[in-house]
């Protein structure tokens, strides 16, 4: 128990890094994901094909391979990224691939009649999207988006392999130093559970609020 207290501070430092990676990459992935989804649905054929190819590429390659390509692979071309930057770039690239699909499904799940009604009163494409389609799509997407954030948070553990000091990294460091891996991993587990539990609570709250009209 004494050991756990000793290392709680270090794990907390790791948690800050994990949180930073998750939050920033999620926000960027969502923004890029929305544009990607719109391009995929409404864009010209070449753009639709390009976005589809991107999604297939991201989905088709193992996460660790993608991370290694960005961090190690690019050095061969003179691009030597610091670990944290490489980790963030990978999380955004990876997250965007999945976010595009979530947003696409959400936007397409909004009934056509809703768009038609907005168009019929004279609303333009962007107004219709912003005031009619997206608010409804977000409610439909809440469960998959929650899932997305939780998975993304867990994905951050992979950055341990390129030496970013996240929770996993700190726990491993502690485990090696103390030779008590069980305690350190348990500590890490608690940190992840607290973060993901909080996310679930927030999502449940949002869903309850959004359910008012359903």
């Amino acid at each position: 128990m004494h050991l756990a207290w000793l290392y709680a501070g270090v794990i907390l430092q790791g948690a800050v890094v994990t949180l930073e990676l998750t939050v920033v990459s999620t926000v960027l992935s969502f923004i890029l994901g929305i544009f990607g989804a719109l391009g995929r649905i409404y864009g010209p054929p070449w753009l639709r094909t390009a976005i589809l190819a991107y999604v297939e590429l991201i989905r088709g390659l193992p996460p660790i391979l993608q991370l290694f390509i960005i961090f190690f692979g690019l050095t061969q071309f003179g691009i030597d990224l610091p670990p944290f930057t490489a980790a963030m770039i990978w999380l955004v690239i990876y997250g965007t691939g999945y976010a595009i699909e979530v947003f696409r499904a959400g936007i397409q799940a909004v009934a056509d009649g809703q768009r038609e009604a907005a168009t019929a009163v004279g609303m333009g494409f962007l107004s219709t999207l912003r005031k009619v389609v997206m608010p409804q799509a977000f409610v439909l997407m809440l469960p998959p988006l929650t899932n997305f954030v939780i998975i993304q948070l867990k994905n951050t553990t992979l950055v341990y392999f390129i030496g970013v000091a996240d929770i996993m990294y700190q726990a491993q460091l502690g485990a090696d130093a103390t030779e008590q891996p069980g305690t350190l991993y348990a500590l890490a587990a608690v940190a992840y559970l607290i973060m993901n539990g909080t996310l679930s609570r927030i999502a449940a709250h949002l869903e309850r609020k959004a359910a008012a009209y359903r």
């Binding site: 009934a111 809703q114 038609e116 019929a120 359903r214």
Partner: peptide, 9 residues
């Protein structure tokens, strides 16, 4: 419209 199409939200 036949299906009303009121904005659900």
């Amino acid at each position: 419209f036949q299906t009303f199409n009121l904005f659900q939200h």
